[in-house]
Design a protein around this nucleic acid. Structure first.
Lengths: 146, 146
DNA sequence: TTAGGTGCAAAGGGTTTGCGATGAG
DNA sequence: CTCATCGCAAACCCTTTGCACCTAA
């Protein structure tokens, strides 16, 4: 898997440039993340590592992933951070705007979602039943004044 | 707030039709969800309730919200269910397809996101820095055969 | 040699569950 | 009267943190 090795090398380089030390544990996490196409969870990365590093701890994997996330080298697909919020007024999937400063959540006006979902269903072979679309940024009140 | 009262009544009706009992606690949760435009969390609903029902427990709010979600009367904006997953190969926001049966996560091909984000930024006044787009459904392997 | 990293175990936040008590139908 | 629902506390899952030991540079 050449592509994966290349990504791993890029991540290593970034770590090194950031003044971080290279350890066998970090190397292992990086290689797994570089090679995986299946978007693993921390638990899954940990399981894959156990073969080579039976003594590794979950905490180390968490720390390494968090480090890489901070450097912009991994994308977090968050299914588990913060608390859930509920919309009782429009109980069907629709896009939201989330302010990362004041934590406000508003509905977004965007009507091409249905179209996109249908298009994607055809291309991917999925039977799409639901979706989730959130935009993150600073609301007009929190953003720096022009 | 007429609109909110109307939604509350719709939810009440749905509960009744589903053979559920009506209690003051449920009524309070429903009214809050029907009136709120700010997408409250369970904790926030709980806080709003305390004024009228100081004895209410968090567990009851959770149970009620879960009930309403099951009936399709509230939309859950999940920032906290399940575990996080990581993508080390393409560490920038891009859409994903999530199979709700086998839990597989794949990248989705969709290129109009940047466009949408820019359009939305103009309309909403947000300074958008990030986004998150997930489609949920059954992958070609899990969906019922035609 | 010495910061920075590791592993363990404890703590933390959000959510769910078990169960005896309560009150809606 | 009966069973669904309530409130409480304990349990759960995922994640983070504190700290003594270790090791890469």
């Amino acid at each position: 898997m050449k592509q994966g090795e290349k990504r791993a090398t890029q991540m290593l380089e970034k770590l090194r440039k950031s003044g971080c030390r290279m350890t066998p544990q970090r190397l292992a996490v990086i290689r797994i993340l570089g090679h995986s196409t299946h978007h693993p969870s921390v638990e899954q990365i940990f399981a894959e590592m156990r073969d080579d590093f039976p003594a590794t701890s979950l905490a180390t994997v968490y720390k390494t992933v968090t480090l890489l996330k901070g450097l912009g080298e991994v994308l977090e697909l968050g299914f588990g951070a913060g608390s859930n919020h509920y919309d009782g007024r429009l109980p069907v999937a629709h896009p939201h705007l989330v302010c990362t400063k004041c934590a406000k959540i508003e509905d977004a006006e965007l009507d091409s979602m249905e179209l996109m979902a249908r298009e994607l269903a055809e291309k991917s072979g999925y039977q799409i039943t639901n979706h989730r679309l959130d935009f993150f940024g600073l609301c007009s009140h929190c953003r720096p004044r022009a």
